[in-house]
Nucleic acid binder design. Structure first.
Lengths: 163, 163
DNA sequence: GCCTGTTGCGTTACAATGTAACAAATTATA
DNA sequence: TATAATTTGTTACATTGTAACGCAACAGGC
């Protein structure tokens, strides 16, 4: 079962997703000799527990509950680290963060964000990027990184809206 | 001369660009029976005068200079109107706004944003979007609008960086 | 022209998001 | 264990974006 095929299906074993993401993160950080500290791991877990992208300030109360300091810099630093390791992505159009389902290899992602329920899913944008890269290159523009986000209605909300 | 071919060329007659954009905006608003008020027109002009996308708060001083009220709601309202008419686009990754070179017809745009000098240019993303749409549709996702932004180095800054 | 409903604007106050700077604590490594 | 590097705590603030309400300007019908 690929990551994409579970998109927008709320009936999968999400607890399993979370554990797998955390386990994978631990392994990746270990391999790279990076420290997945308790705060960083907690932030990653909180993000994975939510199907909706989470804003930085939505994470703060949970950090406080877990006994950590909960000032903004704490969570922003954790997020910065997680991003640097490709474990989470920032969704610019939402000012929010979501877990990356494939942090082990670099890739061009695109987010499908439901304007109904707020859930987001990452799909592969390699082919679309090739197209854009070609145009950019023709203009002499050298790509560093990209932001591709699509807002719309997920299957569930589409159905609800049609009723 | 297409809009794209002038991308990243600083030696074009930008004054002409601005005047054309304003004239086009006036016509579009007139056709749609929308009111391009002095504030709205000034905001549009200020945005076009800058090659870099402008933040809302960067517009405020110029509004004050022109004798207008310059509280945030004023500029945000103008920007909202201009966006609704497709005259400006918001660049999510920068929290900034840029003029649209082809506001007369709907289109899928992609922004090439230079991390060196901050300039941005819009290119066509129709073909890339077709690709992403196909994937989205396969998942039952109905697209409403998209955000496609590429950060990188423009030809000028690329050259400077290579020195 | 003049009324009237609608739209746009002025104003205040505040909410939400993000960072700079420095001190204290923790960890890795010699 | 000493030392350097990294991580975290803490304070204070910068930036970005909105809600709410009253007044002003405008368009359209009479």
């Amino acid at each position: 079962m690929s990551a994409n095929s579970i998109a927008f299906h709320s009936d999968h074993d999400h607890q399993h997703c979370i554990e797998q993401a955390l386990s994978s993160a631990r392994q990746i950080c270990s391999e790279r000799k990076q420290r997945l500290t308790p705060i960083r791991e907690l932030v990653l877990k909180l993000i994975w527990q939510s199907h909706k992208p989470l804003g930085a300030y939505e994470l703060l109360p949970a950090l406080a509950e877990a006994g950590f300091n909960s000032a903004p810099p704490t969570v922003y630093r954790a997020l910065e680290f997680l991003q640097s390791q490709g474990l989470v992505h920032r969704i610019a159009s939402l000012n929010a963060f979501i877990g990356c389902p494939s942090p082990d290899h670099s890739h061009d992602g695109c987010f499908l964000i439901c304007t109904g329920c707020g859930t987001a899913n990452e799909i592969e944008a390699a082919s679309a990027m090739r197209d854009l890269q070609r145009q950019a290159e023709a203009l002499g523009f050298k790509t560093q990184h990209q932001t591709i986000e699509i807002a719309g209605l997920c299957p569930n909300c589409r159905e609800s809206a049609a009723e």
